[in-house]
């Protein structure tokens, strides 16, 4: 029985999905803070939000890079 492979798939799924969701959620949160009207906030909030979205995109692209045989061979 291929239990090891099953665990591998479950682990990879968990890591990939959590990475993407956490990064994107952080981005959403920071955008929300940046969008508040009157609260005092540091100037780096909005750029940091974009960094989060960017990292999220990169994570997805890296995943695609790993699985498309054309690139990883």
């Amino acid at each position: 029985m291929k239990w090891l492979e099953l665990v591998q798939v479950a682990g990879a799924t968990l890591v990939a999905a959590v990475t993407v969701v956490v990064l994107y959620a952080l981005g959403v949160r920071l955008t929300a803070i940046a969008g508040d009207v009157s609260e005092r906030k540091p100037a780096w909030v909005r750029p940091l939000a974009y960094v989060c979205f960017g990292l999220c995109g990169l994570a997805v692209l890296f995943g695609l890079y790993l699985i498309i045989p054309y690139f990883s061979k």
């Binding site: 492979e5 591998q8 798939v9 990879a12 799924t13 990939a16 993407v20 995943g63 699985i67």
Partner: peptide, 9 residues
């Protein structure tokens, strides 16, 4: 994630 991970592992 699940589909891609499974079909490639």
């Amino acid at each position: 994630s699940a589909i891609l991970a499974s079909s490639h592992l």
